[in-house]
Write a protein that binds this DNA or RNA. Sequence first.
DNA 1: CAGTTAACCTGTCAGC
DNA 2: TGCTGACAGGTTAACT
Length: 330
Amino acid sequence: MRVTHPVPELPEVEVVRLGLAPAVTGATITGVEVFDERSLKRHRAATGDFVELLTGSTIEAAVRRGKFLWFPLSNGALPNGALSNELLPGGTALVAHLGMSGQVLLREPNAGLDHLLRIRLTIEHPEHGELALHFVDQRIFGSMAVDTLLPSADGQVAGYSGPAVVDAPWARSIPSQVAHIARDPLDEAFDDGLFLARLARTRSGIKRALLDQRVISGIGNIYADEALWGARVHYEQPAGELSKRRARLLLAEVRTVLHKALAEGGTSFDAQYVNVNGQSGYFAHSLNAYGRQGQPCARCGREIRRAAFMNRSSHFCAYCQRLRRPRPAA
DNA sequence: CAGTTAACCTGTCAGC
DNA sequence: TGCTGACAGGTTAACT
């Protein structure tokens, strides 16, 4: 059997965040090993040396917006004895993006090196003792970086880090390289009206807009196809031609699909140390469109089709999801 | 500014 | 058996 991992989208990244949070919060980074420099491609040299910035720092939390994870840092002692937070006034965070194939695995400190291991962090947790964080990534579209924190654009809590953590000094801060990423649809501060207005003035196809992380974040090819199937919308329907009602329905479908996947990912997620790894295909059984080309549509029984789209593929029911003529202007 | 495309990257597998 | 090409797609730089 082909061993594939699901390309991580919002639910998969949140499962990783949930698993990591208790193990890393309050832990101090005692060792950093970079086995492949390409996994640091998003680390800006001007911020400082990746290894030096991390070593001695303490992880304050595990935060997520869309598919981006970050870990606010404190007490980062530099080799010269200064604190990194003194040098970088807004504070810093370790930023992680899983790309297409990234995983963050929690391991015992003396565990062997995982296949395709790119970065290893050793951490010391006051309660759990010493642990290793393995950043494993086949295709190296993912990355880790240390980045400076900026105030969030709207002044609200910048990302999700578990319930009721809003007063921490880092809560309303966002890494500079994540600042342009829109809030995700499960974020309390996501503005439905702003999103719908943006769709209304977008001429390109709706799936393009759903995949545009500056418009709405957390959605990738799988859940875009699923939400479009649920809302019976053709992937090339110009976003601005959707009726307000249909656009609202689509946003609701996006949330339904993400919540459902999150619930299934959560249930397959047992012990904190075992499964912070996006285990293979755990959401696959509940898909209605993605990867089901040639199989019957669960709604009408007609064949699900696959079409080339933006260097990837779109899966859809050509009967349920037909291009609609725009409603005449009022 | 909005919209679109190419480049990045490698394990797996179908086909020869 | 061993080689080759196709494929998977998130993000961003660069282009029109």
